[in-house]
Nucleic acid binder design. Structure first.
Length: 396
DNA sequence: ATGTAC
């Protein structure tokens, strides 16, 4: 089916899908090189990009970023903004792993400093951070009361419980705490699944790696983020909201399937189940999703804490001695209410990002001041698009 | 991605 999706070349890495189907409200915009594009033509990726273009209230484009591939409803790499009132919010535009994301931690060590202790360190981390399908912590389980606090307070909860340093907070998207989180909108099943999984990695493409800086492209930018030299050791953590977010997604997909009937929404694919933005169903999903967003922030924060503890154990020194500063924690599966200029007017929109990291426009407060007000960080795809600033997720 | 499976 997707073999028939027409593509217009904009440049070597940008392809436009015209509104060739009567139901398409906007064109598609696909960012891919030849090789990736060819792969997309063998599966449902482009067809899913076209399906997203049918969503009520969608603005400007249905976007697919590298490395776009098949997902549930939206393709992974899918980005769409829909009108807050006239549009819809769709859990398929976020995915099952709500606030799957990545954080980078720097150290002041070089490869040669760490090499002799590497095996020991890897073992310590392996002990301290459970991984794999269904991984749980027996040593650290939160009560239902704690869970309900942490999904509202986000990283603040972790810091208050000794699971990090206060300066970590400002190095998170949303300062590690999404507002509107409401645990009353989360099922007991989801809460129960969440109790034993704080500080666990999970499986699939989730990872915790000890890395070294291979090459610095922009010295000034790198320095402001604490990347000083090639060979510097860093740590990267990629994971999400575990069974908690997964359960919330499946619970609300059911709610949204009913909403599609109730509000008589025409959709090309039932995996795009959604609700009009100004309904209770939309509000409930958003409040529950925000809980999973905060859960995932706390999960990555807690994992980082146990990495710091592992350094302390292996080197028998305070972790501060090794730097171990958080550069940034960023989500790539999330929906947010944002205001953007669209075709010259201020619009409140639902931004769906699935496998798409936010990048910062010039002047964004999260850009280190020393980089100057004209600097944008990460690749600003948005300049081509007019109002959305997005970046491809880190690929593996 | 995820205890699984409408």
């Amino acid at each position: 089916m997707s073999g028939k999706v027409p593509l217009e070349k904009i440049d070597d890495y940008t392809w436009r899908i015209p509104q060739y189907k009567p139901g398409m409200r906007v064109p598609g915009m696909v960012f891919a090189n030849r090789e990736l594009l060819e792969k997309m033509q063998t599966d449902r990726t482009l067809g899913q990009c076209v399906n997203v273009a049918h969503l009520p209230g969608i603005y400007k484009y249905s976007i697919t970023l590298p490395d776009g591939h098949e997902g549930y409803g939206f393709p992974i790499g899918g980005v769409a903004a829909t009108d807050y009132n006239e549009g819809v919010i769709s859990p398929g535009g976020v995915g099952y792993d709500i606030n799957c994301g990545v954080r980078l931690v720097t150290t002041n060590l070089s490869e040669q400093d760490i090499r002799p202790k590497l095996a020991q360190l890897a073992n310590a981390i392996f002990q301290n951070v459970p991984c794999g399908l269904g991984s749980r912590r027996k040593d650290f389980r939160v009560s239902v009361h704690d869970l309900e606090r942490l999904v509202v307070e986000g990283v603040h909860w972790a810091i208050d419980h000794g699971l990090g340093w206060s300066e970590d907070i400002k190095h998170h998207e949303e300062q590690g705490c999404m507002k509107n989180a409401n645990p009353d909108k989360v099922s007991t099943t989801a809460k129960n699944r969440g109790l034993t999984q704080i500080g666990t990695l999970g499986s699939g493409n989730h990872f915790l790696e000890i890395q070294k800086v291979d090459e610095i492209y922009d010295e000034r930018a790198a320095k402001s983020f604490g990347i000083e030299h090639e060979g510097q050791v860093t740590i990267m953590i990629h994971c999400g909201s575990r069974g908690f977010g997964h359960q919330i997604c499946s619970d609300y997909l059911r709610v949204m399937e009913r909403a599609v009937q109730k509000y008589k929404i025409a959709l090309p694919d039932r995996e795009l189940a959604c609700a009009p933005g100004n309904t209770k169903e939309a509000e409930d999903y958003y409040q529950a999703m925000a809980c999973a967003v905060n859960y995932a922030f706390v999960n990555r924060q807690t994992i980082m804490h146990w990495v710091r503890e592992s350094f302390k154990h292996v080197f028998r020194e305070d972790p501060e001695r090794f730097g171990l500063n958080l550069v940034y924690d960023v989500a790539h599966n999330i929906a947010k209410i944002e205001t953007h200029m669209v075709n010259g007017e201020r619009r409140k929109v639902w931004v769906h990002r699935k496998g798409a990291t936010r990048a910062f426009p010039p002047g964004h407060p999260d850009i280190p001041a020393e980089l100057g007000s004209q600097c944008s960080y990460l690749e600003v795809w948005g300049q081509a698009l007019g109002f959305l600033w997005v970046q491809r997720k880190p690929c593996r």
